[in-house]
């Protein structure tokens, strides 16, 4: 019996190997040029002191000292913590809110309109987003503080108070991210066969039961995707903190990518910046494996 199972598995393996590689060929060819080469290059750079102005061959070899420097650097560790907080909050809030809204909008009247409106932040240029949220977050006559004032609460320095700034940026990030996630969830919802819901209705299941027993489980491949790519992206976040957090004490809002960017192109320490990028890669890699493992333990098929 076991033998038979084994052989049938072998057979299906063999049957597809050629086709599999054929379908992957364009991607693999691309990655060998535009990923493997740059990564090897950057790894070599990370063991050197290179200011990008002298030829790399003349740069001094420093071994792994930039790695150990970073792991002992207070700034880098602080920046890692900020990024971890940012990633955890942004991803969990964005997906939860996007899921609820996508379900509410799916099948609602004027759903095309709503979907477009929620997607608007994705197409709105950074400048407009920055300006508006700047208005909202103003300490003096900003909208948020005006609301707080109505309730007799103390005004908050949303973008300059070191204890608050990171969370203000997270709020904006969630706001900006909902649309994209909603779009993907909606595409997933369209893949759920309608007769599952019909059957549930016949059994007398209300909207909440339908949501938890049909929608969420059947969306799991989509949710896995959003969680994994959400974290991968959030760990590398750059734009929003960089543009919104400029007046906050940097230690309270700086992220790893920002640190890498600044080290590379302002301090001209490409070696240290590359080392930072590799450390970030290791963290994201382990973190992603962890997420896939959690999803798998939760019985969700997605990564096998």
């Amino acid at each position: 019996m076991a033998c038979k199972l084994f052989s049938s598995k072998r057979k299906s393996l063999e049957r597809n190997t050629g086709a599999g590689y054929l379908f992957l060929a364009p991607a693999l060819l691309f990655y060998s040029l535009f990923f493997i080469y740059p990564v090897i290059f950057s790894f070599i750079v990370s063991t050197k002191r290179w200011n990008m102005l002298v030829p790399l061959s003349r740069a001094r070899n420093v071994g792994f000292s930039e790695y150990s420097y970073l792991l002992k650097d207070e700034m880098f560790l602080g920046v890692l913590t900020n990024t971890l907080i940012y990633a955890l909050l942004t991803v969990s809030l964005t997906i939860t809110i996007a899921l609820i809204l996508a379900v509410l909008i799916n099948g609602a009247k004027l759903s095309v309109l709503w979907r477009f409106i929620y997607f608007a932040p994705v197409v709105t240029p950074q400048v407009a987003i920055g300006t508006i949220w700047g208005y909202l977050y103003r300490p003096n006559n900003g909208l948020l503080n005006s609301i707080l004032r109505l309730f007799g609460m103390k005004p908050v320095y949303w973008l300059t108070d070191p204890n608050v700034a990171l969370f203000s940026i997270i709020a904006t990030a969630v706001w900006a991210g909902i649309g994209g996630s909603m779009l993907i969830i909606t595409a997933g919802l369209k893949n759920i066969p309608q007769d599952y819901y019909d059957a549930a209705k016949i059994d007398g299941a209300g909207p909440f039961r339908q949501f938890f027993y049909i929608t969420v489980p059947l969306l799991s491949p989509t949710l896995l995707f959003l969680t994994a790519t959400g974290f991968i992206g959030a760990w590398q976040v750059f734009d929003l903190p960089f543009t919104m957090g400029r007046n906050a004490p940097a230690r309270s809002v700086m992220t790893v990518s920002w640190y890498v960017y600044e080290t590379a192109f302002q301090s001209l320490r490409m070696g240290r910046a590359s080392a930072g990028a590799f450390l970030l890669f290791c963290i994201i890699f382990v973190f992603t494996l962890l997420i896939l493992w959690i999803f798998k333990r939760g019985g969700i098929k997605g990564y096998e």
Binding site: T160, P162, A250, R251, E262, S267, L268, R269
Partner: peptide, 16 residues
Amino acid sequence: QEIKTILMREIIEAWN
């Protein structure tokens, strides 16, 4: 530039 950034950060810490 690196030195200036360091000084900027510390000045902002003091401002706050």
